[in-house]
Every structure is written in structure tokens, then in C-alpha cells.
Design a protein around this nucleic acid. Structure first.
Lengths: 339, 339
DNA sequence: CCCGGTTGCGCAAGCGTTTGCGTTCGGATT
DNA sequence: AATCCGAACGCAAACGCTTGCGCAACCGGG
């Protein structure tokens, strides 16, 4: 058997209660005794059973993190940063990867997280029912993706403003036909695509450009989707001279399509993305940078703060700064040879 | 208070034992009673407390996954795939992200995982001491990264053979000065860099090419490192005409460096990578593809199998297939204009 | 020298399950 | 009709901690 609290109690000649108090830094133990207990525990290689301690105390020292796709850069990066904050504070992380509809359904009906976590960080936007299920857990909730629900601490960015800066850049370069590669909002109940689209429309209106629905294509926030979308746009009678992709992944897909069509970037077509993916610098993509890891860190911190200060209500939404990054995929229209 | 097992026991007029047996599919309960209990449980929204049940049963229905960097594509992809298998089987995943030395040290000394998991999937190579710590948990262990330790179920690929196919491709194209961008094995106790290097050396020997130590540069398995390494190689009196990067990330860094030096790929320099990163197709990188997600799935499956069949010893190592992928970053030397 | 207040520790009652064993009961076997 | 037996269920003892409470021993102040 593995060593239990009574083993270290016997080894030091005290009761289990004292061992528990000593190891957890509770008052009521003399410093001398505490030192002896700590030494004995280390000596025996004792670690408290989490099951037992959380059963007894009600605290699990575990945070649930639910994400749509761990494999995607954005979510992986947020998770990475958040996990570091949690584990540094002594919390473990329970990961739920809800990419497939089945996994998602299973999660929200069985709610395996119930009674297992002290707080939840959700990187996916729950629909109203799902949000209610999470609230029923009665623990602090947070999210780093747009589309806040009541009860959630939200850390995010100004999606609309970011999109505006990207599109304004294109317009300022002289582009009049600027396309957009976006992603559907449904079924993710996700406001980011909507906000970024609004920013796009704002700038066009501002510049007196009539928006053309044909210039909007759906890229589903994936590389392949971006490629398909760009190909669609190129098939138009009057293709755009510049494209705003709502994510860098889609922008990269667009670059690929352009390369296949033997079009030069930025001479023939300009492309600007959004997110500042880790590989965007590699391909020289002009984009709007958002502090992804910082958002994960911040959300984690706010969650921990609420655990320490349970009476304080949910904090105000936090908006992190964004930054336009000029690289090499944008230029005035038809700056090179004509095609 | 949240609903407990006694609540559903009272609601059905039976004892808690019967409820437990009914809900867990144990024998000793009539089908009629089981149905009533299941209905009542669903009605009340009852979920067993994991803490209590694992305290009583010793099973935690949780798998520990330890990774060096969740944010990196390779690990994120493996994790994604493995988590799906685990959660479909009813297991939760406890994630430990051990990127920093402090986090790593904290994990292996406190071993917060003890008594919390039924098995461990390690995506980092433990040093001998760390491996011993993991074995002391007395649960099935698995890994998907080269450098197996005794006691671990290992799922991997033929790194040496993969490297050989990449380098052979370059040599067959006519390259004689082929450089390599690698990564240090220490302090990760990682045999992958060594194996891939051996493949490189094998092919050179085979082709009667004298290996030149100056043509090997350290890229640390990161994009930036790859860029630095390529820059070093270009500074050589006789730079290589082709480069084998031990990972696609480093290859992309190399591409970036080449672009900055106004060298064309593949006309001036050929580049081949390893891994088939999700964005490699986007940049047209010739590489060696390994089934990353499949490795995660397979490792997870093997772990679950060992949980069901505890007496069976650790299974033989599994080697997954690899595949050379020809794209657009390789060509015969000096195939374009000279520089 | 007596007494109220600390300080340091042990006792024991949980926390919500699981599970070995005991009991009851209806039906099949002699 | 007496017996045996398995099926269905209840009892109660863990599992390994946490924590409110009680009780000595000790402190300094009047």
C-alpha cells in the first residue's frame, strides 16, 4: 500500500489531525512539530490523496478547462498559458476537448466535471443551455472568447476595432474592391466573426465603398477553408484586389490558393490576416496581433482571484490590447505587373 | 446542497448500495428496479462524486497526460487525439504542462498525480530519476516520443529511416553539400535528434560523401532556432546547397532566413523538413510525414487496454508508418540563376 | 498564588461512495 | 412438505482525509 496520513502520524508520534494541519500550513501546530512532520512526510514520500481530501473538504484544487480543439494554435496557446498559472498556484487542470458534437453533447449531459472542479475556464462559447449547465456547477466561470454569457468572467479583445485597422490599412493603400474571408458564427454562438465583419463594414462605409456581398466568402476558420474561399473569390468576374481574412489560418489558406493561381502577393493581391499566428511571421503575413497567451494568463488569474475572494462578484470584462503588424503581404493595388 | 446518492435512494425507496449497483451496471439488481433508479437519477440530475467513488473504489477514472508544451503543434495534436480516446471511454484527462524547468521540478518532486490517476501518458522523455518517480505510481505508463524507458508502452516511428529518406532524396537530386539543422538531445534525454542525425550520416556514408561537422547547426526545434541555424550555415565559406531540417518548424525558420537573404527555394537552396506540420502544405515544404494524431490515439488505446487487462505485461513497442512527401522546396542544385 | 487566556494537540464525526457479507423470499427440487 | 438455492436487496465497514470541539499545559497579570 502507499503511505497514508496515519503512517506519517505514527512516524512522528502525533495524531493525523496534527499532520494534516502541519502539512497544509494551518495554525495550531508549533513550528518545531511542523518541521518534524514535514521532514517525516518528505522522508516517507507522502502525498495526500486528493480524493480523500476533496471529499472531506469540498475543495478539489482542480480547474476544469474546456476547449473546442486543443490541437489548434489559438486554443493550445491559451491553454498552455492558463495551465502554467493554475499549476503554479497548486491547482491541477482537467482538460475537456469538445471538438466533436458527440463529445460536446456527452460532456454537457453527463457533466463529468460536477463536483470535480473549483472553477471552469471555457474556451468555447456555450449555447444558452450549456451555459446554464455550467452555471449549475456553482463555481466561478471564465472565458477568453467573444460572446460572453452572464456569469462568466470574460477576457477578450476589441475584435471590431482590430478588423477596422486591418481593413483601413487596405483602403488607405488604395484598394476599393476588398474581399473578406470569414467564418460562420453558428453553431458556435460565437460573436467574433460578427464583430470582425462589422469592423470590415464600418471601414467600407467610412470610405464610401458600397459593400458587395459577393466579396464575402466563408473560410470556416481553417486553412483549407481559407483556400477554398480565396479560390471562390478569384473565380469572380471582378475579383478583389485585396482580402481581409478573419484569421491567420484562413489567410494562409488564401496565400496558398493565390500561389496555385500563380498570382503574386502583394503585387497582384494583398492579404491581411488576424491573430498573429506563430507562423505568420515566417510567411511574412500582415496581420492584427492579439496577445493570445496573455489572455489565457489573465483569465486564469481572474479565476484564481475569485476563488480567493468568493464574495466579490464577477469582475468587469477585461479587454486586452491589439496591434496592427505590417509585414509583406500588402501593397497598393496592381503594384506589380498586371496579369 | 447538490444531490447525493442517498437522495436518489430515498426517491426510489431503496438503499444506497442498490443505487450504486444499479447505476454502475453491477449484477444483483432486477432490471425493473434498475430502470426506476436510472430514471430517478436522471430526474434528480444526479452524478456520483468522483472524489467519493475513487476514494472508496481506488479507481479514479482519470488519466494523467504530461507534455512539455501544449502550445506546440506536435504535442497539441497528440494530446487532442489521445483525449478523444480517453473521454470516449469515460476517462477524464488531467493535464500537466511541464515546459519550464520549475514546473517540471515541482511536478516530479510533489508528484501531484499520485493517487489521482489510473494511468499516465507522457509526451516528454523522463530522465532516469523521473522515470523512476513515474513507475513508483504503480500505474500503466505510455509515451509517444522516442527514447523509451523500461516500463513504458511506446508508440513511435522510425526516425532514422525517415531521416534517411529525406536526405537520400537530396542526394539523389545531386546535392553533395547537404547541411542539417538539428536540436540538442540534452537536457530532454530525447533520442529523436540522435536517431535522425544517424539517418543523415548513414546516407552520406552510403553516397561516399565525407560528413562536414560545419554543416550541422543547432535549431533547438523551434522556428527561430531554425532561422538562426540557417543563417549560420549561409555564413559559411562554402554554404550547403541543400538542408535537412529535423523538424518542419525549423525548416520554416530556415525558409525565412533564406527569404531574408534573397535566396530562392528551391532554385538556390533546397530544404526538406520532418513531421508534416499542418502548415507545411501551405508553404509547400517537402518533408517526411508521420501520423501524429494516430500515434496519440494508439498510445491512448494501448493504455486503456492495459487497464482492462492488468495482468498482461507492457505491450511491444509500436512503430507507425512514415511517408516521404514531395512538395516544392527541393530541386537539383543550382537549378535556377546563380547568385 | 489564583485565574482568565493562549497555545498545541487529540478525539471523533463526518464527506459520499463502494463492496463483502448477511438476510429475506419465492420457486424449484426431492 | 421439508429443503435447498439463487436472486434481490440492506447493513455496515471501510476509503483517507478535514475540522469543530474539548482538554490539558502553560503564560503573564493582578
Amino acid at each position: 500500500m502507499t503511505v497514508s496520513i496515519t503512517d506519517v502520524a505514527e512516524a512522528t508520534g502525533v495524531s493525523a489531525s496534527t499532520v494534516s494541519r502541519a502539512l497544509r500550513g494551518r495554525p495550531g501546530v508549533s513550528e518545531e512539530m511542523r518541521a518534524r512532520i514535514v521532514a517525516a512526510a518528505a522522508d516517507l514520500g507522502y502525498t495526500a490523496s486528493r480524493s480523500a481530501s476533496s471529499l472531506a473538504s469540498g475543495r478539489t484544487y482542480t480547474i476544469g478547462v474546456v476547449v473546442p480543439y486543443v490541437g489548434r494554435w489559438f486554443f493550445g496557446t491559451v491553454l498552455d498559458a492558463a495551465e502554467k498559472v493554475f499549476s503554479a498556484a497548486g491547482y491541477d487542470v482537467l482538460l475537456y476537448n469538445l471538438g466533436s458534437p458527440e463529445a460536446r453533447k456527452r460532456f454537457f449531459t453527463k457533466l463529468p466535471i460536477r463536483k470535480r472542479v473549483d472553477a471552469v475556464l471555457s474556451l468555447l462559447i456555450p449555447d444558452p443551455e450549456e451555459a446554464a449547465a455550467l452555471r449549475s456547477l456553482d463555481v466561478p466561470l471564465a472565458t477568453t472568447v467573444g460572446g460572453a454569457r452572464p456569469g462568466f468572467t470574460v477576457v477578450g479583445i476589441d475584435d471590431r476595432g482590430g478588423a477596422e485597422s486591418a481593413v483601413r490599412h487596405l483602403v488607405n493603400l488604395g484598394h476599393r474592391r476588398v474581399g473578406m474571408i470569414s467564418g460562420a458564427s453558428e453553431p458556435l454562438h460565437w460573436t467574433t466573426p460578427l464583430d470582425r465583419r462589422q469592423g470590415y463594414l464600418d471601414v467600407l462605409a467610412d470610405a464610401g465603398i458600397e459593400p458587395d456581398p459577393a466579396l464575402e466568402a466563408d473560410g470556416g476558420y481553417t486553412v483549407e477553408g481559407g483556400e477554398r474561399a480565396m479560390t471562390e473569390l478569384l473565380a469572380l468576374r471582378h475579383p478583389p484586389t485585396a482580402v481581409f481574412a478573419q484569421s491567420d489560418e484562413m489567410a494562409m489558406g488564401a496565400l496558398r490558393s493565390l500561389r496555385r493561381h500563380r498570382l503574386r502577393v502583394p503585387e497582384d493581391v494583398s492579404v491581411v490576416g488576424f491573430d498573429d499566428h506563430e507562423l505568420s511571421e515566417v510567411v511574412g503575413l500582415t496581420t492584427v496581433a492579439q496577445p493570445v497567451a496573455a489572455q489565457g494568463r489573465e483569465a486564469a488569474r481572474l479565476l484564481l482571484a475569485r476563488l480567493d475572494e468568493p464574495d466579490a462578484g464577477p469582475p468587469r470584462p477585461v479587454e486586452m490590447p491589439i496591434r496592427f503588424v505590417l509585414r509583406e503581404t500588402t501593397a497598393p493595388p496592381h503594384s506589380g505587373r498586371q496579369r
